[in-house]
Protein backbone atom coordinates (compact mmCIF):
# COMPACT_ATOMS: atom_id res chain seq x y z
CA UNK A 1 0.00 0.00 0.00
CA UNK A 2 2.26 2.75 -1.26
CA UNK A 3 1.30 6.33 -1.96
CA UNK A 4 1.65 5.60 -5.68
CA UNK A 5 -0.88 2.79 -5.49
CA UNK A 6 -3.36 4.95 -3.59
CA UNK A 7 -3.00 7.83 -6.01
CA UNK A 8 -3.44 5.43 -8.91
CA UNK A 9 -6.75 4.25 -7.46
CA UNK A 10 -7.77 7.86 -6.83
CA UNK A 11 -6.90 8.77 -10.42
CA UNK A 12 -8.98 5.86 -11.70
CA UNK A 13 -11.97 7.01 -9.62
CA UNK A 14 -11.56 10.56 -10.93
CA UNK A 15 -11.32 9.29 -14.51
CA UNK A 16 -14.47 7.17 -14.21
CA UNK A 17 -16.26 10.03 -12.50
CA UNK A 18 -15.32 12.43 -15.29
CA UNK A 19 -16.60 9.93 -17.85
CA UNK A 20 -19.90 9.67 -15.98
CA UNK A 21 -20.27 13.41 -15.58
CA UNK A 22 -19.74 14.08 -19.27
CA UNK A 23 -21.70 11.15 -20.66
CA UNK A 24 -24.86 10.90 -18.55
CA UNK A 25 -28.07 12.55 -19.68
CA UNK A 26 -29.86 12.26 -16.38
CA UNK A 27 -29.00 14.97 -13.86
CA UNK A 28 -28.91 12.53 -10.97
CA UNK A 29 -26.54 10.22 -12.83
CA UNK A 30 -24.43 13.22 -13.71
CA UNK A 31 -24.20 14.05 -10.02
CA UNK A 32 -23.11 10.50 -9.33
CA UNK A 33 -20.18 11.18 -11.64
CA UNK A 34 -19.30 14.31 -9.67
CA UNK A 35 -19.55 12.37 -6.42
CA UNK A 36 -17.23 9.69 -7.77
CA UNK A 37 -14.66 12.34 -8.69
CA UNK A 38 -14.87 13.79 -5.18
CA UNK A 39 -14.47 10.25 -3.86
CA UNK A 40 -11.13 10.08 -5.67
CA UNK A 41 -10.16 13.50 -4.29
CA UNK A 42 -10.99 12.35 -0.77
CA UNK A 43 -8.89 9.22 -1.15
CA UNK A 44 -5.94 11.16 -2.55
CA UNK A 45 -6.14 13.73 0.27
CA UNK A 46 -6.15 11.07 2.98
CA UNK A 47 -3.38 9.19 1.15
CA UNK A 48 -1.16 12.28 1.10
CA UNK A 49 -1.99 13.04 4.71
CA UNK A 50 -1.15 9.54 5.85
CA UNK A 51 1.93 8.72 3.81
CA UNK A 52 3.57 11.96 2.69
CA UNK A 53 2.62 14.69 5.12
CA UNK A 54 3.40 12.86 8.35
CA UNK A 55 -0.15 13.23 9.64
CA UNK A 56 -0.43 17.01 9.90
CA UNK A 57 -3.93 17.83 11.20
CA UNK A 58 -4.63 20.23 8.32
CA UNK A 59 -4.55 17.23 5.96
CA UNK A 60 -7.57 15.77 7.73
CA UNK A 61 -9.16 19.20 7.63
CA UNK A 62 -8.88 19.14 3.83
CA UNK A 63 -10.80 15.86 3.78
CA UNK A 64 -13.50 17.38 6.01
CA UNK A 65 -13.79 20.36 3.66
CA UNK A 66 -14.11 17.94 0.72
CA UNK A 67 -16.98 16.24 2.53
CA UNK A 68 -18.65 19.61 3.05
CA UNK A 69 -18.26 20.27 -0.67
CA UNK A 70 -19.96 16.94 -1.37
CA UNK A 71 -22.87 17.87 0.86
CA UNK A 72 -23.24 21.26 -0.82
CA UNK A 73 -23.06 19.67 -4.26
CA UNK A 74 -25.75 17.13 -3.39
CA UNK A 75 -28.09 19.64 -1.82
CA UNK A 76 -27.88 22.33 -4.48
CA UNK A 77 -27.88 19.66 -7.18
CA UNK A 78 -31.13 18.12 -5.99
CA UNK A 79 -32.70 21.55 -5.55
CA UNK A 80 -31.78 22.40 -9.15
CA UNK A 81 -33.13 19.07 -10.38
CA UNK A 82 -36.39 19.74 -8.57
CA UNK A 83 -36.58 23.20 -10.15
CA UNK A 84 -35.85 21.79 -13.61
CA UNK A 85 -38.37 19.02 -13.14
CA UNK A 86 -41.09 21.46 -12.17
CA UNK A 87 -40.39 23.43 -15.32
CA UNK A 88 -39.72 20.67 -17.85
CA UNK A 89 -41.10 17.52 -16.22
CA UNK A 90 -37.90 15.74 -17.06
CA UNK A 91 -34.60 15.05 -15.44
CA UNK A 92 -32.54 15.35 -18.63
CA UNK A 93 -29.74 17.72 -19.43
CA UNK A 94 -31.16 18.03 -22.96
CA UNK A 95 -34.35 19.54 -21.60
CA UNK A 96 -32.45 22.71 -20.77
CA UNK A 97 -31.90 24.35 -24.13
CA UNK A 98 -33.14 27.88 -23.62
CA UNK A 99 -29.67 29.35 -23.35
CA UNK A 100 -28.68 27.90 -26.74
CA UNK A 101 -28.88 30.03 -29.85
Amino acid sequence: MTLTAILLVAAALIGIGLYGTLSQQSFVMLMMGLELMLNGVLLAAVGFWSLAAGGVPTGQLLAIVTMAVMAVEMSVGFALITAVYRNRQADMTESLGTMKH
Binding site: L18, Y19, G20, S23, Q24, M29, T93
Partner: peptide, 19 residues
Protein backbone atom coordinates in the same frame (compact mmCIF):
# COMPACT_ATOMS: atom_id res chain seq x y z
CA UNK B 1 -29.14 7.45 -21.46
CA UNK B 2 -25.83 8.85 -22.59
CA UNK B 3 -24.64 11.58 -24.91
CA UNK B 4 -21.22 12.44 -26.36
CA UNK B 5 -20.21 8.96 -25.36
CA UNK B 6 -16.92 8.63 -27.21
CA UNK B 7 -15.76 12.04 -26.10
CA UNK B 8 -16.58 11.20 -22.48
CA UNK B 9 -14.66 7.92 -22.61
CA UNK B 10 -11.73 9.78 -24.09
CA UNK B 11 -11.90 12.49 -21.44
CA UNK B 12 -12.08 9.91 -18.65
CA UNK B 13 -9.08 8.01 -19.96
CA UNK B 14 -7.16 11.23 -20.59
CA UNK B 15 -7.82 12.38 -17.02
CA UNK B 16 -6.63 9.05 -15.64
CA UNK B 17 -3.52 8.90 -17.82
CA UNK B 18 -2.68 12.53 -17.16
CA UNK B 19 -3.01 12.23 -13.39
Amino acid sequence: MVHQHRFSIGAGIAAFVGL
